[in-house]
Design a protein around this nucleic acid. Structure first.
Length: 168
DNA sequence: ATTTACAATATGA
DNA sequence: TCATATTGTAAAT
């Protein structure tokens, strides 16, 4: 397994590569470990990953992606992530909608779970999945990041539902 | 109109 | 069995 970092205008991301391609992508602020020397093929993947991440942070669509290493996950999760990739830039889908598209209407909650298990944010745009009323759900990299990513794509979200109990 | 309760789904500890 | 990045429905206020 090899780890490399990506320098962007939004910070230093880090990526982890497995045998078959990109396996995980981490937001800045998390521990950054960079391998000093990696195989040539990994360097090629990393060049693609870097370009893709920078493109996304710039509000454009990455033209080419590295192979993704997702075989260790379940079919259900891969189905969900495949659907997320179908969401065009600037659009969003609800958890329920994603569930319907993969043939599991009512699997709304499970979709949330799959999003949480997404190892590759940004490239698999889990940030484009909102609640039914475009409310901000959650995000593995922190809600601040989710808001920022959506803002880049020109999407505005309603504030999360705050249970308002005033002690009298 | 607003609040409360509940069922249904995939997955991991 | 319990938890989670949800949601739609039903009933009561």
């Amino acid at each position: 397994v090899h780890s490399l970092t990506i320098k962007t205008s939004h910070g230093r991301f880090s990526a982890r590569y497995g045998e078959g391609g990109l396996a995980e992508l981490y937001f800045p602020e998390t521990a950054v470990i960079e391998d000093s020397s990696v195989p040539a093929i990994v360097q090629d993947w990393h060049a693609l990953t870097t370009a893709a991440v920078i493109a996304i942070l710039d509000g454009s669509v990455p033209s080419l992606l590295p192979p993704l290493e997702l075989h260790m996950h379940t079919d259900f999760q891969r189905s969900v992530w495949h659907q997320l990739r179908q969401i065009p830039l600037g659009k969003t889908a609800s958890y329920a909608e994603v569930g319907q598209r993969i043939g599991n209407p009512g699997a709304t909650r499970a979709v949330g779970g799959a999003c949480g298990a997404n190892p590759i944010p940004l490239i698999i745009p889990c940030h484009r999945v909102l609640g039914a009323n475009q409310t901000l759900g959650g995000f593995s990299g922190g809600l601040e990041w989710k808001r920022r990513l959506l803002a880049i794509e020109g999407i505005t979200v309603k504030p999360a539902i705050v249970p308002l109990t005033c002690p009298t």
